Amino acid sequence: MNTHRPAAFLYSVMILAVLSGCASSSAKPEGGAPPAPSLPVLKVAEVPATTYREYNAALEGKVNVEIRPQVDGYLDKIFVDEGAYVKEGQPLFRINDRPYREQLSNASALLLAAQANEEKASLEVSRLTPLVQNNVVSDIQLKTATAAYQAAKANVAQAQAQVSNARINLGYTLITAPVSGYIGRIPLKTGSLVGRGETQPLTVLSDVKEVYAYFSMSEVDFLRFKDKTKGNTIADKVKQLPPVELVMADNTIYPEKGRIETMEGQFDKTMGAVSFRAVFPNASGLIRSGNTGKVKIPEAFAAAILVPSEATFELQDKVFVFAVGDSNKVTSKPIRISGKNGNWYFVEKGVSAGEKIVYTGLDRLRDGAVIAPETISLDSLLKARPL
């Protein structure tokens, strides 16, 4: 009987157990690492599109007239209310006119006296003329009478000027609208003492049939405008700009489109910007002086690289995307945005057509992370959110 067979059998069983344990341990992931996250990935492409550049704007009526008194006195009557629409020539205010009526009466009386003296001097010249011709009196008397007559004529002219001035001042007591428009705030009330020395106007009258939108363009944007817009001169380039839109303070789009008319001749050194003026029709009076908004200038691209805003993140004033590379590793890349339309960015530099970027879930990613990409279609996104 062979006594070594049970020992050999036991040894074989132990070897198989050890090998089985090694195989099972090698089948487990090292350190229990989690699987790669599944994230939607978008292939960047070029499409024809229109982007917009937005600039903060201050809105003013085409004509803003400060209504100021031309004479001193107490405010007798206010004919209009704040916010009312008035027509050119319509009465607005009346200043107490009694002192000015008295001044006119006094000036008129002085004129009558001066005219009487002129007539008397004229008669004296007429009386002396034949006497001098007949050598009855010396010509020195005629010369004296003629000089008195000229002085009387001058007094009449001066009196007439005083009457005209008094009449003008009397007319200034009734203040009328120089243009048609809307009345602004009226800070003074009936009975207030007003005059030419007041720093505050009686009101401001705004003609808002057309409104001006004043906005500033940075030096970088201005150089871009100068290089990309056709025209030999700046004035020609301004004329070539397309119609612009106005975004109101509540982010609604004003129904009428406007046009850019002029730009200032110099840059503001403190702001590093140059001002432009756009004009918008406002026949319905929806816009008033003092409103604010944004001017949107369109720019058409034959082929633009589109990136949805959800696929970007900001870091230290720069915009980044996560590009998907070999072995599905992601890398953050800065991009330069040339414009925006809704939730779409137009990328000038940073990514190229055909590259893949992560669409959502960026907050869970770091450079070098591996993902399980789930490809989504750019066309499907554009159908859901058209430009």
Rank of each mutant, 00 (worst) to 15 (best):
172 Y>G: 06
104 L>I: 03
203 T>S: 14
281 P>C: 13
279 V>L: 10
221 D>P: 01
163 V>G: 13
326 D>W: 06
304 A>T: 00
159 A>N: 07
284 S>N: 15
302 A>G: 08
328 N>W: 06
207 D>P: 10
12 S>N: 07
155 N>Y: 03
385 R>L: 12
279 V>T: 11
224 R>H: 14
219 E>N: 01
121 A>Q: 02
44 V>G: 06
157 A>H: 10
353 A>T: 14
57 A>F: 00
384 A>F: 01
180 S>A: 08
348 E>Q: 15
61 G>T: 12
71 V>D: 10
120 K>G: 08
286 L>I: 14
160 Q>A: 12
17 A>S: 09
119 E>D: 15
80 V>F: 03
339 G>H: 05
9 F>K: 13
50 T>L: 03
209 K>S: 15
101 R>K: 11
85 Y>T: 10
108 S>F: 09
343 N>C: 13
264 E>Q: 09
341 N>R: 13
221 D>L: 02
80 V>W: 08
238 V>H: 08
161 A>C: 01
138 S>I: 14
362 L>G: 10
237 K>T: 05
315 L>P: 01
154 A>G: 12
150 Q>A: 15
277 R>K: 15
104 L>M: 14
5 R>I: 15
313 F>P: 08
83 G>E: 11
352 S>H: 04
206 S>V: 10
292 T>C: 03
9 F>M: 13
358 V>G: 03
95 I>C: 05
307 V>C: 05
79 F>Q: 07
197 G>T: 07
149 Y>V: 00
192 S>W: 13
310 E>M: 09
23 A>L: 14
313 F>G: 05
37 P>L: 12
382 L>Y: 11
37 P>N: 03
39 L>W: 05
114 A>M: 03
174 L>D: 09
8 A>P: 02
231 G>I: 02
219 E>A: 10
76 D>W: 02
239 K>S: 09
373 P>R: 00
229 T>Q: 11
247 V>L: 15
13 V>K: 02
175 I>W: 10
73 G>Q: 00
355 E>Y: 04
190 T>D: 06
372 A>H: 05
100 Y>G: 09
230 K>P: 07
196 R>T: 15
131 L>A: 12
297 I>A: 04
283 A>M: 14
265 G>E: 12
91 P>I: 06
